[in-house]
Amino acid sequence: MHSAAREFVREMLEMTAGPLVWLLYLLVMYGAAAVHCARPAADAADRTPLLIAGGALGAVAIGLLAWSVLRARRELASESTSDARRFVDRVAFALGVFGIGAIVWTALPVLLSPACGVVTDAAQRSW
């Protein structure tokens, strides 16, 4: 790829890593929950696989974003970059922090909500 184009795509991916990783985490967890809940009812009632998957994937996603946030902070500390690059790094930093918070927030239902089954009044009473 023409070097400037490649550089720009890389910058944009770094800048939006926070919400991008969050979105991927949400989609993967939604898919995992759907697959888990398609299993026979007895297996589906056990939330352990989802807790493990959610925790492990969450840790990887948060680790990635923590790396991205630290990278942006390191770039910001160096004074040689242009205004545009500093802007991109500042946005990357803030969106990275936002992404980490969003992942934790979105993962909470794995801990707090029953895994499968349509929610009914009877099911709500049994929680």
Partner: peptide
């Protein structure tokens, strides 16, 4: 980005599993 991750909240009443709708509610 968030706009791409909330479509299921239009489907809360369709019988989707509780955990799935909780993700999208969050």
């Amino acid at each position: 980005f968030a706009a791409l991750g909330v479509w299921v909240h239009h489907m809360f009443a369709t019988g989707i599993p509780a955990l799935s709708i909780s993700f999208f509610s969050a």
